[in-house]
Simulated scan of single mutants.
Amino acid sequence: MKKATLLFSAIITLLMVSCEVNGLDGRDGLDGLDGRDGIDGQDGVNILAQVIDIEGDFTAEDDYSIFYEFPNTIEVFETDVVLVYILFDQTEDSNGEAVDIWRLLPQTLIVDQGLLQYNFDHTFFDVNIFLEADFDLGLLLPGDTDNQVFRIAVVPGEASGKSNLDHTNIEAVMAHLGVENKDVPRVKLK
């Protein structure tokens, strides 16, 4: 009987101790105060993929080059890939709609005067598109120099290097970047 009483006493003691938590009766504590909002920061620059069309003329005054400075909304990093395409031609689809034909630079053409190359270089701040030829560039026809349209794509390094993206195919590049033709702004240079 002593064992049963001792066992019963131990169970009752255990139950009574477990109903109390550190001497508190289980009431909720007071709510804390909300923190203060911080000061809003400045808008950052867009470091995502950017695609821009530029239109300009190659002239002797500009040494047969078209210079485009990136606006503040575009930041180019050392690891980014800058691609430049020339609007080479247009065709029609089955609905009679115009379809642009783009070619990645550098692009070499055989013209009546000799070999002509559209080429480019870039920095973190700008793109310079220029003509090179084995003849006097002053002999070029307006169709090779006037109202030329170029598409510049700034591809973040991580987007370019982690896939087998075909840089020669502007449609594949834009699809990879999630950019549609209707979203590409065109800048007309003087």
Rank of each mutant, 00 (worst) to 15 (best):
E75L: 13
V76A: 02
T79A: 08
D80H: 03
V82E: 02
L83T: 03
I86R: 08
Q90G: 08
T91W: 06
T91P: 01
D93I: 11
S94D: 13
G96E: 11
E97H: 10
D100C: 09
D100S: 15
L105S: 06
L105Q: 05
Q107I: 07
Q107Y: 10
Q107E: 11
T108C: 01
L109G: 00
I110E: 09
I110Y: 01
G114D: 05
N119S: 15
N119R: 06
F120D: 00
F124L: 15
F125A: 13
V127F: 00
N128Q: 09
N128F: 08
E132A: 08
A133Q: 06
D136A: 10
G138V: 07
G138K: 04
L139P: 00
G143D: 13
D144T: 02
D146V: 15
D146I: 10
N147C: 06
N147M: 10
Q148L: 07
V149I: 14
F150C: 03
R151T: 05
I152M: 01
A153L: 09
V154C: 04
P156V: 04
G157D: 04
S160N: 15
S160T: 04
G161H: 08
G161L: 08
K162M: 14
N164S: 14
L165E: 02
E171I: 10
V173D: 06
V173R: 05
L177C: 14
G178L: 09
E180V: 06
N181M: 13
N181E: 15
D183F: 12
